[in-house]
Computed example of a mutant assay.
Amino acid sequence: MQKNLHPSVIKFKEFVKNNPALIKEVRDGKSTWQELYEDWYLLGEEDNRWESLGVKASNSVEKNDENKGDWISTILGAVQKMDPNQIQHYINNLSQALGAIQGVISQFQGSQPSQVKPKIEHKHPFSFRKD
């Protein structure tokens, strides 16, 4: 059974499969997988560091953009790649942050004296009494 891996790990595995020089780098003991992954994640696939290892820069991102041409297909492609669970997590975090901001704002507003006096409303406009 294969565990559900983070999308960035899956992309890194594809990067390694396309560049066997990285495997040789690790087997020779010059680098670790962790170091290579961190460099790949922080620097990207187009960085000069990969050229020094004999890795060819991938132009797959540029080819995909040229093939799609119009913005609708680009948006649809992005929507298809979204992970619903991750989006829900981000929405929950955003909601909690907004709630905290609202709480802080309400505390500041609560400490200021209110300038509007509440109206006293009577149930009946005229008070009639029976004699």
Results as ranks from 00 to 15, higher is better:
20 P>T: 10
85 N>W: 10
50 W>D: 10
101 I>E: 11
77 G>D: 06
18 N>G: 02
5 L>R: 06
91 I>Q: 13
39 D>S: 08
72 I>G: 01
57 A>R: 15
17 K>C: 09
115 Q>T: 11
94 L>A: 08
44 G>W: 02
103 G>E: 14
88 Q>T: 12
15 F>Y: 14
92 N>M: 12
75 I>G: 05
100 A>F: 11
65 D>Q: 01
73 S>D: 15
36 L>Q: 11
126 F>P: 00
52 S>P: 00
64 N>K: 15
86 Q>S: 01
29 G>A: 04
11 K>L: 13
130 K>V: 11
45 E>Q: 01
81 K>I: 10
116 V>L: 06
17 K>G: 00
95 S>P: 00
128 F>N: 14
127 S>N: 05
95 S>I: 07
42 L>F: 13
33 W>D: 03
10 I>R: 09
78 A>F: 11
85 N>F: 07
12 F>W: 02
107 Q>E: 03
8 S>K: 13
61 V>Y: 15
19 N>G: 05
11 K>F: 00
87 I>K: 05
113 P>L: 03
48 N>F: 01
72 I>S: 09
31 S>Y: 06
74 T>E: 10
15 F>A: 05
6 H>T: 01
126 F>G: 02
99 G>K: 01
7 P>N: 04
87 I>T: 09
57 A>D: 08
30 K>T: 08
105 I>E: 14
40 W>N: 03
53 L>G: 05
2 Q>M: 10
50 W>K: 09
39 D>A: 05
3 K>L: 13
29 G>H: 07
116 V>G: 02
74 T>D: 04
24 K>Q: 14
8 S>P: 00
13 K>I: 10
51 E>W: 05
110 G>C: 04
4 N>R: 10
119 K>E: 14
14 E>H: 09
116 V>H: 05
52 S>V: 12
44 G>E: 04
20 P>V: 08
131 D>H: 13
16 V>E: 02
55 V>K: 13
82 M>C: 11
32 T>H: 09
39 D>Y: 04
37 Y>D: 02
34 Q>E: 05
29 G>M: 06
25 E>L: 11
27 R>Q: 08
110 G>A: 02
67 N>D: 08
47 D>C: 15
16 V>M: 09
55 V>W: 12
23 I>M: 11
9 V>E: 12
26 V>E: 03
37 Y>V: 00
29 G>D: 06
22 L>H: 05
98 L>M: 02
76 L>K: 03
21 A>M: 07
62 E>V: 15
56 K>G: 10
127 S>V: 13
26 V>D: 04
99 G>F: 07
89 H>L: 06
36 L>V: 10
7 P>E: 01
89 H>N: 14
93 N>P: 00
80 Q>R: 15
119 K>D: 06
79 V>E: 12
41 Y>C: 01
88 Q>G: 04
104 V>M: 15
22 L>A: 03
4 N>W: 02
78 A>R: 09
110 G>S: 03
14 E>I: 05
40 W>M: 12
53 L>K: 14
108 F>E: 09
117 K>Y: 11
113 P>Y: 11
84 P>C: 05
84 P>H: 04
57 A>K: 15
82 M>P: 00
5 L>Y: 03
91 I>E: 12
43 L>H: 08
45 E>P: 04
22 L>D: 07
2 Q>I: 07
130 K>R: 14
120 I>G: 04
88 Q>E: 09
25 E>N: 03
61 V>T: 14
85 N>K: 02
18 N>L: 03
85 N>Y: 11
128 F>I: 06
50 W>T: 11
52 S>K: 15
91 I>K: 12
